Amino acid sequence: IVFIGPNSEIISKMGDKDMAKKTMRKAGVPVIPGCDIVENLEKAKTEAERIGFPLLIKARSGGGGRGIRLVKNINEFENNYKSATSEAQSAFGDGMVYIEKYLKPVKHIEMQILADNLGNVVCLGERDCSAQRKNQKMIEESPAVILSEETRKQMIEVSIKAAKAANYRGAGTIEYLYTADGSFYFMEMNTRLQVEHPVAEMVTWIDLVKWQIRIAAGTELSFNQDDIEFKGHAIECRINAENPYQNFKPSCGKISMLHIPGGPWVRFDTAIYQGYSIPPFYDSMIGKLIVFAKTRDEAIRKMKAALCELIIEGIEYNADFAAEILSNEEFESGNYTTDFIEEIL
């Protein structure tokens, strides 16, 4: 039996965010200013004062926004340190944390990579994942309109370098924070196919699921970086069973009626069906709505129409709120940052 994806050593190495940062720093990849693992509160305070406030305390393991605390001054530090380590221990079985400088305002830009077993690595461009709430992505799009061609080329080159430094195999994502002055910093690497991978597929016409299986089977990539062309614009909205107008209250229950939007280049990835019951035990995401068009403006219009066509009766869901985000002037400009949604709530 062959595992589809990188081996356990790479998964462990990149899953340890402290080790991942050391690997990237050694390879010459820019990383967010900060420190390595802090073993106790006193050492953490010393490093915090050296780094300067505001800063982030971040769990070494896991993801999904768990074990992260924003600290604005030294008076808040001890409580947030204890809270972050406790949550990390509970969620991931590992309470170790490290500290990073808090960069704001920033965009969250991630680069999609594919690497075969013969050392060939290609980057399938970027996704702008800045539309998020509490570190949870809500809308993703590709390409990121704010990036210049020069910066895009630099990020592609750095991402390929990062993948080679990690000896990576399969499909993976390298995530960066992008600042207003055009700088970008490695944040973490996800050693898997991500929720938002369809937007990369749509703008490159490369089937990521197919290629991760082929790579696991030992097939060499049949294309190189020069073959990658970016066409059109794709947007994905995460459809969650929750009520954004009641503090994102989770919603569960039986789906009494389901209408899925259709049409050219409209895709809905989901496991739900009419009669399916949404349980209260798991993540609130129940589907992904993805559209593709020749231009960003057209993609936004198409997504708004698809959100209107999506009908899920029996539960509450966030389609109307997603449409409001798409209609916001800041989103339309492409200049929105990671704190954009929190500011409009």
Rank of each mutant, 00 (worst) to 15 (best):
K254I: 05
R238G: 06
I213S: 04
C237Q: 12
E236T: 09
K231R: 15
Q246N: 14
I206Y: 05
D207T: 01
L221D: 03
E229Y: 11
G253T: 03
K231F: 14
V195Q: 06
N240T: 13
F223G: 00
G253W: 06
T219Q: 15
I213A: 02
P244I: 03
F223N: 02
E196C: 07
E242S: 00
Q212P: 08
R238L: 09
E196G: 09
A241W: 11
E220M: 13
V209E: 07
W211K: 00
I228T: 06
V203K: 07
N240W: 12
F248W: 13
G253E: 04
E220N: 07
S251G: 12
P250N: 15
N240A: 12
K249P: 07
I228G: 02
R214S: 08
A217L: 13
I239Y: 13
A200K: 00
N247G: 02
V209A: 14
S251M: 12
F223V: 05
F248L: 11
T219F: 15
E196Y: 06
E229P: 04
R214N: 11
E242K: 00
E196L: 05
A216T: 05
S222E: 07
H197F: 00
T204L: 00
F223E: 01
N247C: 05
I213K: 04
C237V: 11
D227V: 05
D207Y: 01
I215K: 11
A200C: 06
F248S: 10
Q246R: 14
R238C: 06
E196D: 06
Q246K: 15
N240V: 11
W211A: 07
F230Q: 04
M202C: 08
N243D: 15
P198T: 00
D207P: 01
E236K: 10
E229D: 12
A216N: 08
K254W: 09
A200N: 13
D226L: 09
W205Y: 08
V209T: 08
R214A: 04
G218Y: 10
A216L: 10
Q212I: 03
P198S: 05
E201S: 01
E196S: 07
